[in-house]
Computed example of a mutant assay.
Amino acid sequence: MQTIMKDPSGAVIGLDFDGTLSPIVSDPAKAAIHPAAPPVLAELARRVRAVAIVTGRPVETVLGLGPALADVPGLVILGHYGFERWEGGTVSAPPPPAGVPRAQAELPLLLDRLGMERVGVEDKGRAVAVHTRNAPDPQGAFDTLRGPLADLAERAGLVVEPGRFVIELRPPGMDKGHALSLFLAERAARSVLFAGDDLGDLAAFAAVRSSGLPGVTVCSGSAEVTELAESADVVVDGPDGVVELLRELLAGMDG
């Protein structure tokens, strides 16, 4: 972090959304950004090269759950793992993939056949996510669904992204690591910090390390995803810890 503090104008700060800037909740539609995050991000954005949220969520959903983000100067949101991009109030994205509607159509029959109770399906536009957090046995439902959902994804020309009691079916060809790598090159970054909380963030951690830049990987810690903590340079206590770390980063820039 010393390089970022000494040369903030060359730094890119990348952040996941759910579990990193927003606490995990049982109903994804009821998530909300940490109330202290937008002003901290706004102050960071004034000092660093760029602040980017890199998320599997659609851009529209992120802005709905964190409307104050629209006022963060220069913020970039890379939604759907980078397939969507929001910058300066404008969203750019390719057409939705054909396989997603097919997966959505087949999912109710698959879940019924497997006897899945209280398993939620989230329409993410360019992806579909199956949540087991509210099932009677969340881990058992997750384990049971992994194989059948992988088969469904293959038939629909999609790939599977597992997470914290969620299995997402999305288009191939983009992940958080690829999205972050492209963004670092675009902005000619001289250093990078990325914070995440879930398995999908491992690709972004790998991108930080393969960039050749001075970099820091931060895990927004939980008892649910130990693999990310084991791979991180710094582990903090959930979104509260992420916000506090960013405050410390800002304070170091003033030192």
Rank of each mutant, 00 (worst) to 15 (best):
M1H: 13
I4A: 11
K6L: 15
G14F: 03
D16P: 03
I33K: 12
H34T: 12
P35H: 09
P38N: 10
A42V: 04
R46N: 04
V48A: 06
V48S: 04
T55Q: 12
T61H: 11
L63M: 12
G64K: 07
P67S: 13
L69A: 13
A70V: 08
G74V: 08
L78M: 12
F83T: 14
E84T: 11
E84C: 11
R85G: 00
G88A: 05
G88E: 06
G89M: 08
G89Y: 07
A98H: 01
R102Q: 14
A103Q: 00
Q104V: 01
L114V: 05
G115S: 06
V121Y: 00
E122N: 02
D123V: 01
K124Q: 12
A129L: 04
R133F: 09
R133P: 09
N134S: 14
D137Y: 01
Q139C: 09
G147W: 00
L149V: 02
A150R: 13
A153K: 00
V160S: 09
G163H: 06
G163C: 08
L169T: 01
P172H: 03
M174T: 14
A179D: 10
A179W: 06
A179P: 09
L182D: 14
L182P: 00
F183T: 05
R187L: 10
V192F: 04
F194V: 14
D197L: 03
D198S: 06
L199E: 14
L202Q: 09
A204V: 01
F205L: 06
A207F: 08
V208G: 11
G212T: 10
G215F: 02
C219W: 08
G221Q: 12
E224G: 02
E227T: 15
L228S: 05
S231G: 00
A232K: 09
D233Y: 04
V236G: 13
P239I: 06
P239L: 07
D240M: 09
G252N: 05
D254S: 15
D254M: 11
G255M: 03
